Amino acid sequence: MTSAPGIPANLTDRIAQQLRARIVDGELTPGQRLSEAALSEDLAISRNTLREAFRLLSKEGLLRHEPNRGVSVAIPSIAAIIDIYRVRRLIECQALAQAYPRHPAKKHLRAAVDQALRCRDAGDWRGVGTANMELHKAIVELADSERLNEMFAHLLAELRLAFGLLNDPEFLHAPYVDGNVKIVELFEAGKPHEAAAALADYLVHSERIVLAAYARRVSDAGASM
């Protein structure tokens, strides 16, 4: 990527990464309009630097710029949601099935499900969602590919936007906490192929839920016009 003159590429990338993390954490939601003034002050950067980060995230499909209306967080299309889940099945299931049993990311898997359980007990459903993101990130880490890790970080941000369409984190995440625990327990028990099969079923069900949420959102938007 080439930044505008006078703006270090590493600074632009760093700001883009921070904004991407806010999307993954659910802090920025689909359709939310972003204030240049507020964000540049919050991040202690110039508006020019922020605009460069906006351009980068717009190319990734995470932000949307509309003339005379500014920048907003993107709303994933139905085609994007289907593609996200197709990529997830290809990457995550293979990474889990072929993983080295004592891979260091195994600890990340356990930490993520333990965090999800703590958040569920506390009624922190946004926290459950963030822990879920960490679990799937750890699954991809099992593949030992920096390229996949980087690509999946971008995909996770898109995925969190798709989850945001449901606007009900408890309904979305509650059914999958125990499923995540089961997947991790199968992997810890030396059954990676069974864990991958359980993950494949999980992803199919999750995709149906998110697509149904998208359909409802489109229907409600049409009814209000």
Rank of each mutant, 00 (worst) to 15 (best):
L165P: 09
V210N: 05
L34E: 01
C119R: 13
A197Q: 10
S145N: 02
H136E: 07
D178M: 11
N180H: 13
E60C: 05
I78V: 14
R69S: 10
A223L: 14
I91E: 12
V184Y: 14
E52A: 09
E146K: 09
A9H: 08
A200M: 09
R217K: 13
A196G: 04
R147I: 12
D124G: 01
H173D: 11
V218N: 07
P5D: 07
A131F: 01
I7L: 03
H154R: 15
P5Q: 04
R14I: 00
P175H: 08
R88G: 11
L135M: 09
L165C: 06
D124R: 02
I45Y: 03
E60T: 14
N180V: 02
P175M: 04
L203Y: 09
A38E: 15
A44I: 12
R22K: 06
G6I: 02
C93S: 15
L109N: 02
L166E: 15
A200N: 12
M225N: 14
A131M: 03
A44M: 09
A112L: 05
Q94V: 12
G70S: 04
P101K: 07
P5N: 01
D124I: 06
I139D: 05
R126P: 00
L50H: 02
E41A: 15
L165D: 06
L135R: 04
E66W: 03
A37Q: 13
N48F: 10
A37Y: 06
A189T: 05
Y202A: 00
A111S: 12
G129A: 01
R160E: 15
D83N: 13
A99K: 14
W125K: 04
D25F: 00
H65E: 11
V140N: 06
A195K: 02
R69Y: 04
A16F: 03
E141L: 10
G6K: 02
A122D: 12
K182G: 00
R118Y: 06
P8H: 03
A198Q: 07
G123E: 01
V24M: 01
A74M: 03
E188F: 10
H173W: 08
A212C: 10
Y176S: 10
L43M: 08
R64W: 01
L109W: 00
E188Q: 15
R20P: 00
R147K: 11
L56W: 05
E52S: 08
L166W: 11
H136T: 06
P104D: 06
R88M: 13
G222P: 03
A44S: 10
A111C: 04
A122N: 09
I82S: 10
Q18C: 03
Y85V: 06
A196D: 00
A74E: 04
L155G: 04
